[in-house]
């Protein structure tokens, strides 16, 4: 059962943590804004029941992403293939990517739901998309740092 030791695997570490980041950000959105504040459902263009169904699918997706991402991380660590610097980059890219996608594509292009109803949307949209871009920027910076860190090792 003892796994063969292997070198750190940046690509798989990145992938696993992108999954965790997406799952966690979706969970924060779903739990805080859908369930606690009840500002919106995932799909608000249909009946309330339609909104509930769309939230159910989002909920299932985030649970699967979180648990399977966690398992991929556990597997990478067991095999000694976990690359910590890439892990943080992946996490922030995943979280920021989901938030930005949600803010730009879901809210503004597809318009399946808005952050909140009955209010002036501009500050909400700026905060939503701004938060996403900030997380993405952190992810990008960590990505560059991880690459710079790996470069001398390969030389």
């Amino acid at each position: 059962m003892a796994p063969a030791p292997s070198a750190p695997d940046p690509r798989r570490t990145l992938g696993a943590l992108v999954l965790v980041g997406i799952g966690l950000m979706a969970a924060v959105d779903e739990v805080v804004f859908h369930q606690l504040l009840r500002w919106h459902h995932f799909y608000d263009l249909s009946t309330p029941a339609g909104g509930i169904v769309s939230d159910g699918l989002l909920h299932a997706a985030e649970l699967v992403a979180l648990v399977s991402g966690g398992f991929l991380v556990a597997d990478l660590r067991r095999r000694g293939a976990f690359a910590p610097a890439w892990a943080w980059a992946g996490f922030f890219v995943g979280a920021g990517g989901f938030q930005t996608f949600d803010g730009v594509i879901d809210h503004k292009l597809l318009r399946v739901h808005q952050v909140r109803y009955g209010v002036d949307l501009l500050p909400y949209d700026l905060a939503w998309i701004g938060a996403g871009l900030a997380l993405l920027a952190v992810g990008g910076a960590l990505w560059m740092r991880a690459r710079a860190h790996d470069a001398p090792a390969q030389a």
Partner: peptide, 21 residues
Amino acid sequence: RLGVLFASIAAHAVLSKLMFA
């Protein structure tokens, strides 16, 4: 099997929210 488990999670979430509402 993963897809069916996904559907089951979604179905549970939907059904329990409909019961709540």
